[in-house]
Design a protein around this nucleic acid. Structure first.
Lengths: 327, 327
DNA sequence: TAGTTTAGAGTTATCGATAACCCTAAGAGG
DNA sequence: CCTCTTAGGGTTATCGATAACTCTAAACTA
């Protein structure tokens, strides 16, 4: 009726009627029902963002970027958290589909997210993948340079004299973990260092590292002198375990990792990291998504790779040489 | 039609028809439209959570708690972030009202959130306030013991021999800032220490502290020997500024604060803090909200105060006495 | 056997907003 | 004076799911 015309500023309305409507709206505390509107308009102007760990600063920064972009483009954001669980992801997909959001920004838990993603694609819902690729899914993506970053981080350790570098990786069902391993291996090869499978360990990106994992590494006949952790939380878990056991970082073991540890403020930054532009992941992702929704995107899938930066800090130090080995 | 009966398991459906419907649903990739359902049911089973800073671990832990509780109770969570801005808060309120969520869990930016909150109450929307009170709003609340916590933190400093303790507080339009100041003053009084207004500074909970603020304190004729920061980010900002200027913590200035710095993992925890049970804030808040929605709540408003814990760590040390003053 | 249940499924109205169409009176134009 | 335009605003159908009702056989009861 006339109210709709006033709210949306469409059609012809006399100044008088408009005033009358507005004043009655105020008087009644009228608030339009966006569900009813979406039902007829067939669009909700809501985008959905799924992240895998809301306590990880990488994802909270990403969320802020997504939020800012969405706000600027006139969309609202439905934020959810999968805890790296495929099952929660599935639940969430159902929610999102039945809520008829206009598009989804999706940081998948891993390769096993495939069926979940297929379900989205079947509904023809615009989709942008974040941070991780999933084999079998073609769509727009915003990725980091995992391979190159891992290579740089490993080379940094090598340049400090380290020859025995362990890799504490995420699950191999996650694309970033695979790529980080490749980068690590590339760096070893490039410097003619052997790849040793006993220097490899694997854990969930979200979980702390069990002390036993660290024990195993440190109690080898030739323990590593440096540890490359594939993400920030793995590094924290490892360092905590090391300190508990009485080891010192970096004196006994240098530790480096992917991703900053804190969102913004850092007191006396400790960790040597490859920092990814988390905010831009979210911001760019939303831009790509909205382009796609509004048919402004090119026909083919876009694959944006954001650069990262090496920050050398205190957690990585010069290697101590062989005379320490038999200590 | 019959489909609805199948989906909701209501009414009488023959086994045969049910199978037929289900198979066609699968074949068509049918997904029910929850907006249409909400429209007629007059409930959405969506709750909304507004936090003021998504990058602050206090709020991300809180969000996880809220999410877990919501999931367990059969609700979904719409998460948003006000950045401590009343204007964003207002936008968000409008979104939430027009989305017809079933209830709102609200961490207000401050006393100026009053009009925003009134708008919610006018619609009779179940509401639970988190962390901060707002004068003029009566509703269920989950709070921390700001006053007592501040008192304990201040007394901890006093017990270390500090006599000149500065307070770096949040804006006085935020209830927690006022209470933390009260606790601080109580502790001073209790130990017959003078309250000095030149030891007070105020900044936004979200912002870094400007270096000038720290400069002002440290360049006083009688500079403080300890600093009580009213939240974690203020403490981080202060410490960063101090380190930049060449001061050491705790040697030159002890620093303590409210709230943990990191969500879960802490490497070699540094900061002496009053830790609040952030997860429980969210979890309890959702429980109270759902009770209210389902009319299981008592008639009067509930006001739950969650206890907090003092963790003494390295950022606070013994006071150095007068012979240092004229150094 | 006649009347009454009942299982199973179809019909209609509804939630609130909007698209598309229609209606009326005043003013414009010849 | 009559026709035509147009401003302003009312009507109806629609989005998709559900509540409440109806309908039709078959089954059951007395």
């Amino acid at each position: 009726m006339t109210v709709s015309r006033v709210i949306n500023n469409t059609g012809r309305i006399s100044v008088d009627t408009r005033k009358r409507v507005l004043s009655i709206m105020k008087e009644m505390n009228y608030v339009p029902n966006s569900m009813a509107r979406s039902l007829v308009k067939q669009e909700s102007r809501i985008l959905s963002l799924l992240i895998t760990d809301i306590t990880n600063p990488f994802y909270t920064s990403l969320a802020r970027g997504a939020e800012d972009a969405a706000r600027q483009l006139g969309y609202r954001l439905l934020l959810a958290n999968s805890d790296e669980s495929i099952a929660k992801e599935k639940e969430y997909i159902e929610t999102v589909l039945s809520a008829r959001v206009d598009g989804v920004l999706f940081a998948p838990a891993g390769d096993d997210s495939l069926p979940n993603l297929r379900k989205l694609k079947k509904q023809n819902l615009p989709l942008v993948l974040l941070d991780r690729e999933v084999p079998g899914i073609d769509c727009d993506m915003v990725l980091g340079d995992s391979k190159d970053g891992a290579k740089r981080l490993t080379e940094h350790l090598i340049s400090l004299g380290h020859r025995r570098i362990a890799l504490l990786n995420g699950a191999s069902t996650v694309s970033t973990a695979r790529l980080r391993r490749e980068g690590y291996e590339d760096a070893l090869k490039l410097h003619s260092l052997p790849f040793r499978s006993d220097y490899m360990a694997e854990a969930n990106y979200r979980m702390g590292v069990t002390d036993t994992l660290v024990d195993r590494l440190m109690q080898m006949p030739e323990p590593p002198t440096a540890l490359f952790a594939a993400n920030n939380f793995l590094a924290l878990g490892a360092i905590r375990a090391l300190l508990n056991k009485g080891y010192r970082v970096p004196e006994d073991l240098s530790v480096v990792c992917f991703d900053e540890l804190e969102a913004g403020f850092v007191v006396d930054p400790f960790m040597t990291v490859i920092a990814q532009p988390a905010y831009e992941f979210g911001y760019t992702g939303i831009q790509m998504l909205v382009d796609r929704i509004q048919d402004k995107a090119p026909a083919g899938w876009r694959r944006i790779m954001l650069p990262s930066e090496l920050h050398v800090r205190k957690s990585s130090g010069e290697a101590r040489f062989s005379f320490f080995d038999n200590e």
